[in-house]
């Protein structure tokens, strides 16, 4: 469904030019949930922004359903691919009610029947009608993230790009949002690309994942490999150890991978 080949992204010019993504490639099947894992500066979010079309100065090949994507995207693409952002406090317009935020895409695509669509999608994300006319500041972080998911769903997309969707949330809320995301994917047969720094979240959500470091692909592994510890790359092993908590002796063996 999604194929990325030889993706390269540069930021800046001349001396300060930064090769943010180096020859990254992967494929995602329909209905699959694919993970992109890495630390800050690994380029994982940049890859997502290239696919979504928020970044336009990339080089390489991105295909969706066998159709090669250009730098600019059309309306049909918007209906097919939607995105959920990391910060639930920054991703909703502070002066628009939830109702207005959700109606906006319906109006843009002239789909009609806005009221019913909003009610249905609010139900889908488990919020219900009483939240409809609130402002974002009247919602908790988890509720806001549900609204962000609802906004992505209202156009009935086939692919949802998730950029650290739970890293700003408390763990108990994270569990609720992850459960919601999984239910929706199964119900609507969606394809996910999930970006996260947290190996546990990715392994909970995805069967295959790509580990990135400093713009480069480290390796593509399956969830089972992660579970059994059958990992060849040292970088991934270190990430795995670090995710398990504070261990004084293990920390002394940490390396800086270039």
């Amino acid at each position: 469904m999604i194929a990325v080949e030889n993706l390269n992204v540069f930021f800046g010019h001349g001396q300060t030019r930064n090769h943010a993504v180096k020859d990254v490639g992967f494929t995602v099947e329909k209905g699959e949930s694919f993970g992109l894992v890495g630390e800050s500066g690994s380029g994982k979010s940049t890859v997502l922004n290239c696919i979504s079309g928020l970044l336009t100065h990339w080089k390489g090949r991105i295909e969706i359903d066998g159709v090669r994507l250009m730098q600019t995207r059309n309306m049909a693409f918007c209906r097919k691919v939607q995105m959920v952002f990391q910060d639930p406090y920054g991703s909703l317009h502070p002066r628009h009610t939830i109702d207005r935020t959700l109606k906006e895409p319906v109006k843009i695509h002239r789909l009609g029947d806005a009221n019913n669509r909003v009610a249905r999608v609010l139900d889908d994300v488990g919020l219900g009608a009483k939240f409809r006319f609130r402002f974002p500041h009247q919602l908790s972080g988890g509720q806001r993230q549900r609204v962000a998911v609802a906004r992505a769903l209202i156009l009935d997309p086939e692919i949802i790009l998730l950029d650290e969707p739970t890293s700003a949330l408390d763990v108990s809320i994270q569990a609720e949002v992850l459960n919601l995301l999984q239910d929706i994917r199964r119900e609507k047969n969606l394809t996910y690309i999930l970006v996260s720094h947290d190996l546990a979240v990715v392994s909970h959500m995805c069967n295959r994942l790509l580990v990135m470091n400093r713009g480069k692909t480290v390796e593509t592994i399956t969830r089972n490999q992660l579970k059994s510890g059958a990992i060849s790359e040292k970088y991934t092993t270190q990430l795995l150890v670090a995710g398990k908590g504070y261990d004084r002796t293990a920390i002394d063996q940490f390396q800086d991978f270039r």
Binding site: S172, Q174, N179, L199, A200, H204, M205, R223, L226, L240
Partner: peptide
């Protein structure tokens, strides 16, 4: 709090909330 954390060696079923 402890049980709602996703675990690498866990299942992909619903996390307890």
């Amino acid at each position: 709090l402890l049980s709602c954390l996703p675990k690498i060696d866990g299942t992909q079923d619903h996390l307890p909330t």
